[in-house]
Design a binder for these strands. Structure first.
Length: 901
RNA sequence: GGGCAGUUAGCUCAGCGGAAGAGCGUUCCCUUCACACGGGAAAGGUCACAGGUUCAAAUCCUGUACUGCCCACCA
């Protein structure tokens, strides 16, 4: 005897092994089939899988499995991302636990460690995805890595091609610098956090010593790098000051007062300090007014080029001392509380320093224009479509992309310099390593994947590679075609590219999706995917983002251990509607677990019902079917239609919902309950046929969502099926079959179910034990309606537990009976002396009042001339119908009330 | 500062022009031979607020108020 509750653990383990072993997820180009391809958003090598990963990958798995089971050649391409800064930070932390820094190791040794790390933890995440049931072929030869050889070739090719078109350049610009990570970042790698700070008002006296300007700032420490002060040219308060000179407090420097319309009159004091080296606005203004850039903050985030007492101090420390000094010298005019947003590094959350630096950039304007066109004419479509506009807006405001990173882990920039020819532009660190390149000062680039033999200019052989690496997103941007070994030409690339859909959270829409689109159009001349499915973020039950620091992280693997993978998958998808964020908690998994258990028990019921070697007809021809069979087949096929509609729109939640409520509400609660007595009759074979047909059909339809249990139950069911494939996943999901659609069966079953429900209500109201059989009289004026009831009286007898059920035209209400109305039927249950007449009168009275109110509503509507004039005929017919029904019901209730007199 | 969502039963959310829905929770009845991770029944809602369009509005429009995101260089 099988356990009453489903134990998922061993079963899931078993199947995940078998699926991999039998390679059922591997794919080969098959010209007889249409390809359906997804490239996995490659997870970073930074640690374990979180709920967000789980959700993202489950969605993809559902699409892949669904498409496979509807006849496509599916390929879900697995891989991991080296993850640049993020991974390097993890490695640095690891080193720290050994008391070491990366400098202690040196670049080469550090990279050895990194590759070691990649070996150790590289595929852990893919193994975790395997546990989640993801239909990825994770055999070694199938897994891609953004830094393996073929991907490195792709990166070089992309770099080279952009370089040749002059779309990659070296420039001196204001960039975002993370002093903690020691690298430049692109604009979108900066996050902003609101912080409570202060606005300090500082007096900058005139060079004569007279009262000068009061300047408001949030960053007093940068004043050491001020090279001007500015006011709005239209600001009358300051018109006399323009052109005069100020003496910069704490220094000996004299700076001019300039006029620039970028200065807001109404902010602060209307006068602003200008630090071109450390503020993006000031940098621009500096260019306009030809101001000097004085850098006072180093790449390490320490004060430089300033009076001795501040030298070498951190930004924070310097701020404190400077404020004290200003106060002591009487320059600090006032301070007021101020909230403003501070830029933070998206990888380590430390403050970003904007500073001027020479870096590598990609020109974005033209590529963005092409991408905008593709988005506008929907060569690429967004689900939900509301993302289209923000996506296009972002592209329209795009800035050039800073792609060089001063870290070690990543694709080294494929540019070399001759030590002789570029001497002036090369700087070396104390340890003798090439540390900075300056094109401005004469570095001459040679673009090459491998070290060139000799310098093309002087034939010198001392060539050094650029020390920087590329932004990790540079290689991710090529992912949809680099996974197929582009630039190599291959059948795979032709067959699988463009991929079918990209599934991602909105947080990397710009960072990644936009760049893939631009890269795809640039290098392949085709969008990388025609559809982008954007889902929400998994939050905690209070709507907070899950984060380690908040301690509200739910580990998906812990949950799958506890409740089963299927339960977790079910719950996540069930709650993921319309691309919105999911508020996830352990509670909601329980709902999923319960459903899985229900499914399991239906299977138990079936296996217990079918005898060993029992012959089953498998005949679903209409002549062989009774009302309940026609009805459930009708419902089933309607559900299939809904399922496929939803899946075509990437609406997995809705699809799951449809099949869920069909299975539980229609199939379990009604069809199976009716099947039980029918199995004891001559109808046995046909009932088993329908049961098996619907059950296996449901297994197939549900398999994309809950693969493990369905595969397991299919294995148990297989022996009773006429023909079956190896695995459930090898089967095709049934297509909705118009021949089974039978609206009449639905109408008739609704009548019967309505009556059964009414009798159940009466039982509950009169506290009749569910076990007790009761007599009942059902009557109607309509002999056609009664005929259907008579033919299916068993259904009522069984589910309402009646004996001596009388179905009679125009019958009188038996004395001392409880009554209810359903459609055209009156239902009476003789109660003998047990009935409380007053209570029954009150109950019927309430029903009467309610129906009367309804009737008024319909009457009012129909009396409304405008309604008759403007409403569509179908609507009027409907209201008329309702009016008739209400009238009928009133009539019947009246008779009931009469009977109490 | 701009943009985009959301505001429906105690909680999480469907519905998005034609009689207010689901799941969970709550209350009552039931261990009947698939399932108590179950079955049956019930309670519970001026659909944020104010206007408007319409024969008809939770649903469309316009405001308002919160809430949450995203974007933006206001010191």
């Amino acid at each position: 005897m099988l356990s009453k509750t489903y134990e998922p653990k061993q079963i899931e383990l078993k199947w995940s092994e078998i699926w991999q072993e039998k390679k059922i997820f591997s794919s080969k180009p098959d010209s007889t089939k249409e390809a359906f391809t997804i490239v996995i958003p490659p997870p970073n090598l930074t640690g374990a899988l979180h709920m967000g990963h789980a959700f993202n990958n489950i969605l993809q798995d559902i699409l892949i499995r669904y498409k496979k089971m509807t006849g496509y050649e599916t390929y879900w391409v697995p891989g991991t991302d080296h993850g640049g800064i993020a991974t390097q930070n993890v490695l640095e932390k690891l080193l720290k636990t050994e008391g070491k820094t990366k400098e202690d190791l040196g670049r080469e040794k550090f990279l050895e460690k990194a590759w070691q790390w990649r070996k150790e933890c590289g595929d852990t995440i893919l193994n975790q995805l395997k546990k989640l049931g993801c239909s990825l072929d994770i055999s070694k030869e199938n897994i891609r890595f953004t830094m393996d050889e073929p991907r490195a070739q792709a990166v070089f090719q992309a770099f080279k091609s952009l370089w040749d078109k002059k779309n990659i350049y070296r420039g001196i610009r204001m960039i975002n610098w993370c002093p903690r990570c020691g690298t430049a970042l692109s604009d979108i790698e900066v996050e902003y956090e609101e912080e409570k700070s202060k606005l300090w008002h500082i007096h900058y006296p005139l060079e004569t010593g007279e009262k000068g300007l009061i300047i408001a700032t949030t960053r007093p420490e940068t004043m050491l790098g001020d090279t001007a002060a500015a006011v709005n040219p239209k600001d009358e308060r300051y018109s006399n000051f323009i052109g005069k000179k100020l003496k910069l407090p704490l220094t000996d420097r004299i700076i001019p007062i300039i006029a620039d319309s970028a200065v807001e009159k109404d902010f602060g004091t209307g006068a602003v300090k200008i630090t071109p080296a450390h503020d993006i606005n000031d940098f621009e203004m500096g260019k306009r007014h030809k101001l000097e850039n004085i850098r006072v903050i180093s790449y390490e985030g320490r004060m430089i080029n300033c009076p001795e007492q501040y030298l070498g101090k951190s930004v924070q420390a310097a701020r404190k001392i400077i404020l004290e000094d200003l106060k002591g010298l009487g320059f600090l005019y006032k301070e007021e509380p101020y909230k403003h947003s501070v830029s933070k590094c998206y990888r380590c959350n430390n403050n970003i320093e904007p500073l001027v630096s020479e870096q590598w950039f990609v020109k974005m304007k033209d590529m963005a224009d092409t991408a905008i066109k593709a988005a506008e004419n929907e060569e690429i479509k967004f689900y939900p479509s509301s993302w289209k506009k923000p996506f296009i807006d972002w592209l329209k405001n795009i800035q050039d992309w800073c792609i060089s990173r001063q870290i070690w882990w990543g694709h080294r920039i494929p540019v070399w310099y001759c030590k002789a020819c570029s001497a002036e532009g090369l700087k070396f660190s104390k340890t003798g390593n090439l540390s900075r390149i300056s094109f401005k000062h004469g570095a001459k680039p040679i673009v090459s994947f491998n070290r060139p033999d000799k310098c093309p200019l002087c034939l010198g052989q001392n060539l050094l590679q650029d020390p920087d690496v590329l932004d990790t997103w540079f290689s991710s941007a090529l992912w949809p075609f680099s996974v197929f070994n582009w630039p190599e030409k291959s059948h795979d690339l032709d067959y699988y590219y463009p991929t079918s859909v990209l599934v991602t959270g909105y947080e990397i829409l710009y960072l990644w999706v936009a760049r893939m689109l631009m890269s795809g159009l640039e290098h392949m001349n085709k969008v990388p995917f025609p559809n982008v499915y954007i889902h929400g973020i998994v939050r905690d039950k209070h709507g907070k983002k899950m984060s380690k620091s908040l301690g509200n992280v739910i580990d998906p693997l812990l949950m799958t251990d506890k409740y089963g993978t299927d339960a977790v998958r079910f719950s996540l998808i069930f709650h993921s509607v319309g691309g919105k964020d999911i508020q996830f908690s352990e509670d909601i998994i329980i709902g999923g677990r319960n459903f899985i258990n229900k499914l399991y028990n239906v299977s138990r019921f079936l296996m217990m019902s079918i005898k060993e070697n029992e012959k089953i007809s498998y005949n679903l021809s209409p002549a062989n079917l009774k009302l309940a069979d026609k009805w459930i087949l009708h419902k089933y096929n309607k559900t299939l239609a809904g399922l496929s509609d939803s899946m075509e729109n990437f609406d997995a939640a809705n699809a799951l919902n449809a099949i869920y409520s069909f299975f539980w509400d229609d199939f379990c609660d009604w069809y199976i309950e009716l099947a039980k007595p029918r199995l004891e009759t001559a109808e046995r074979s046909k009932v088993l046929t329908v049961l098996l047909h619907i059950f296996t059909g449901a297994l197939k339809a549900m398999h994309p969502f809950i693969p493990y249990i369905t595969e397991e139950l299919f294995l148990n069911t297989k022996k009773h099926l006429p023909l079956s494939k190896r695995f459930l996943a090898d089967n095709l999901i049934d297509k909705a079959n118009q021949n089974f659609i039978c609206e009449n069966s639905e109408k008739q079953m609704n009548s019967i179910m309505g009556i059964i429900t009414q009798i159940r209500i009466l039982r509950a109201q009169f506290e009749i034990s569910p076990a007790k059989k009761i007599n009942a009289v059902i009557t109607s004026k309509n002999s056609e309606d009664l005929k259907v009831l008579k033919e299916n009286a068993d259904y009522i007898a069984f589910l309402a537990k009646t004996e001596n059920l009388q179905i009679i035209e125009n019958a009188e209400k038996p004395k001392m009976s409880a009554s209810a109305i359903s459609e055209s039927f009156s239902i009476h249950i003789p109660m003998g002396g047990l009935i409380d007449i007053e209570k029954e009168k009150e109950r019927i009275g309430k029903e009467y009042a309610k129906t009367d109110k309804e009737l008024c509503l319909w009457n009012d509507k129909l009396k409304n001339e405008n309604f008759i004039k403007f409403a569509p005929q179908t609507e009027i017919d409907k209201i008329n119908q309702r009016k008739t029904e209400a009238l009928e019901k009133i009539e019947k209730l009246k008779i009931l009330l009469e009977s109490f007199k």
